[in-house]
Design a protein around this nucleic acid. Structure first.
Length: 647
RNA sequence: GCUGUUGUAGCUCAGGGGUAGAGCACUUCCUUGGUAAGGAAGAGGUCGAGAGUUCAAUUCUCUUCAACAGCUCCA
């Protein structure tokens, strides 16, 4: 008999060789019907594999992340089975589940191309095969047998993969008439897969190497019921509607021009106003926390970046230097603000009493990004960082970190991002050779980050080996209204630049010491942040940010005069209002203001003029009735001051 | 940068070897209308760019540029 410990701490006894599925049945039949896989001693395995020793067991169902990915991985096999049935001779590369949901399989169709219609056919075949309730059967095979199987099948990709595996650790999985080299685990049978959607086709190099052959990658996603698939598809539709590139155009926020250059966004008046408002918001918060504004030029002498080390590391992948005509001196477009800020630090000698020094700048930087990488506002070649560099003593790192976390959370909360996590990136535990700086300082900084994140109650994930070579960091990920994750703010400790720029301060011991530098950007970049904000709120900005807050809609020309009077009053109250004075019907004016996502509309006719009132309409909510100007101004003011989210 | 798809009016898109169409937007006129599209007329295009095939190319072929999807990359 073996002891099985369940997640609630209960210990049950079973015969050795029992499977997770058996155990589930012993608890309840209903549970057994939902079990996709099992986590035994922390390792995810087939629910049908025998358990031979004492173990902790977690039954995985569709509600578990690991349960989902097991099902998606099994779905990739189901798709491969369908592909073999439809396209005999197809060769298979890799077919994993993907983190964001769903799965893909890289396949070699032997020169055949497939299109949308083919996807529907493959889907239909998958649905048909899934109904067979084929069991996923695991089999351990020797390396020789494995090679023989795929040699006979003529699949060179699998053969290449097998060559790299150790004999004795090779397993095959078979469902229906399809057998694949696979580590597993898999769901019990194909019957769990009820709803299937193949989403897109793309090229992908074998093993991600562009020197290798390009395979066809087919993406798909599956669900245990049609309802969840429908919800998933609705979410994709909603995401398309909220695409910042589409909304940016519709709401006249920003634009691109081939003539100006790729990846160089230009801000239209409405977008520029929004951007300025965000800048001012952060600037005010920073001034209150002891930051000092600085301004540095858009270009810097190449030597600056040689000193910082960026030239050596990124020089070849940067915009080429520009040269002065007479002297031939080389200047680079600024790819980072920190080297400039280091030189600012050195402008005067520093005492330990001066620290921390906090230099803040909305610095526009330019980086060469590969053509295929450019994407709306999220991946550009010129962007503005809400950058600041904190120069402090090693003993001040923790305190500074706490303050920065406060600032970042203040920004997120003010902008309606309620759902965030923090990733702490530390040194790799094994190999520490690639990191610059003393062990002692790293230890201090890593502890400071962990402790300050804990002190602030941040939901945190620690990743070893993810630190930059120059220091550990803390990255903020937010989840937007559609549940998508974005990386925004970042805080990074840097031991490298103070060293390279020989930054110093005079300590209480009258000796020279090296300050620690902290890079931080709550938004990351204004461009990227605004893109995320647009998609988060679907273009319906909170009132305090909305480019136009109020649209005044006179019912006819007769109300024009009153409309202008109201507009003047709003302007005097610092409320951004516009009049729609076209001779269109009120229904049309309302429709257009609604589509432009203007938060408030004032419908003004003869009645309102007579009573000296305004009829207020709220975007996507409708008529709020009439009120006095004072009441309306108070309504707006309250919403602005509290930075309420749109809805 | 690589692979694939796409490129027609300001926007969304139809068409197709004989140099072009719709809806919305725009301009003018009529209409003065009470909570999501009033009516009429008009203007607007080297059909992304270059080359080739052809009597004739926006349409076919090639090259190129850009957008999109994915891959690789990202201080």
């Amino acid at each position: 008999m073996i002891n099985i410990t369940l997640p609630d701490g209960a210990v049950r006894q079973y015969e050795a060789g029992v499977t997770a599925l058996d155990i589930a049945k012993s608890i309840s039949e209903g549970l057994a019907r939902k079990v996709l896989a099992a986590k035994v001693n922390g390792e995810v395995i087939d629910a049908t594999r025998p358990i031979t020793t004492d173990a902790t067991l977690q039954l995985l169902t569709w509600t578990d992340t690991d349960g989902k990915s097991t099902m998606w991985h099994s779905s990739a096999h189901l798709m491969a089975e369908a592909l073999e049935a439809l396209y005999p001779g197809v060769k298979l590369g890799y077919g994993p589940a993907i983190e964001g949901g769903g799965f893909y399989y890289d396949v070699d169709l032997g020169g055949r191309t497939i299109n949308e219609e083919d996807l529907r056919k493959i889907e239909a075949k998958m649905v048909e095969l899934a109904k067979h309730n084929s069991v996923y059967t695991r089999k351990e095979v020797s390396k020789a047998d494995a090679l023989q199987y795929f040699t006979e099948k003529g699949d060179e990709y699998k053969i290449e993969t097998i060559h790299e595996l150790a004999d004795g650790s090779i397993t095959f999985y078979t469902q229906g008439g399809f057998t694949d080299l696979c580590r597993g685990p898999h769901i019990p049978n194909t019957g769990f897969i009820k709803a299937i959607k193949l989403t897109n086709i793309a090229g992908a190099y074998w093993r991600g190497n562009e020197k290798n052959k390009m395979l066809t990658r087919i993406y798909g996603i599956t669900f245990p019921n049609q309802k969840e698939l429908d919800e998933h598809l609705a979410l994709i539709e909603e995401a398309k509607k909220r695409d910042h590139r589409k909304l940016g155009k519709e709401l006249e926020l920003f634009t691109f021009s081939e003539k100006v250059g790729l990846g160089l966004p230009m801000w239209l008046p409405k977008g520029a106003l929004l951007r300025e408002r965000l800048q001012r918001f952060l600037q005010e918060a920073q001034m209150a926390t002891g930051y000092l504004p600085v301004v540095t030029p858009h270009i810097g002498n190449k030597n600056l970046y040689v000193t910082s080390g960026h030239y050596e590391k990124y020089g070849q992948d940067s915009f080429r230097p520009i040269t002065t005509p007479e002297e031939g001196e080389e200047f680079m477009l600024k790819p980072m603000n920190c080297p400039h800020h280091c030189e600012l630090y050195k402008a005067s000698p520093k005492s330990y009493k001066d620290l921390p020094v906090r230099f803040a700048e909305f610095g526009t930087v330019y980086r060469y990004e590969q053509h295929g990488e450019l994407h709306g506002l999220t991946r550009v070649r010129g962007f503005t960082q809400d950058d600041a560099h904190l120069f402090c003593r090693p003993d001040q790192v923790k305190d500074e970190f706490m303050k920065v976390i406060d600032l970042v959370l203040y920004v997120f909360n003010s902008l309606g991002f309620q759902n965030y996590t923090a990733q702490v990136s530390l040194r790799s535990k094994e190999d520490r050779s690639k990191y610059i700086g003393t062990d002692e300082n790293w230890e201090l900084a890593e502890q400071a980050i962990i402790e300050s994140a804990a002190a602030k109650g941040l939901p945190t994930v620690v990743e070893y080996g993810e630190a930059a070579f120059y220091g550990p960091k803390l990255d903020f990920m937010v989840k937007d209204a559609l549940g998508r994750k974005w990386q925004l703010g970042t805080i990074q400790v840097d031991y490298n630049l103070p060293e390279r720029f020989e930054l110093e301060y005079i300590g209480a011991d009258n000796a020279k010491h090296r300050p620690v530098m902290i890079h931080r950007a709550p938004f990351g970049s204004l461009e990227r942040f605004i893109a995320v904000l647009i998609e988060h709120c679907g273009g319906k900005f909170p009132l305090w940010l909305a480019p136009t807050q109020v649209k005044i809609l006179p019912i006819s020309d007769k109300s024009q005069e009153y409309a202008e009077k109201v507009a003047a009053q709003l302007k005097a109250a610092d409320i951004r209002a516009e009049i729609d004075d076209r001779s269109e019907k009120i229904g049309k004016k309302i429709r257009e203001a609604e589509l432009a996502k203007i938060p408030y509309m004032l419908v003004l006719g003869e009645k309102e003029a007579t009573d000296n009132l305004v009829a207020v309409r709220r975007q996507s909510k409708g008529d709020l009735g009439t009120m006095t100007m004072d009441q309306f101004k108070e309504l707006v003011n309250e919403e602005v001051v509290n930075r309420k989210p749109f809805e």
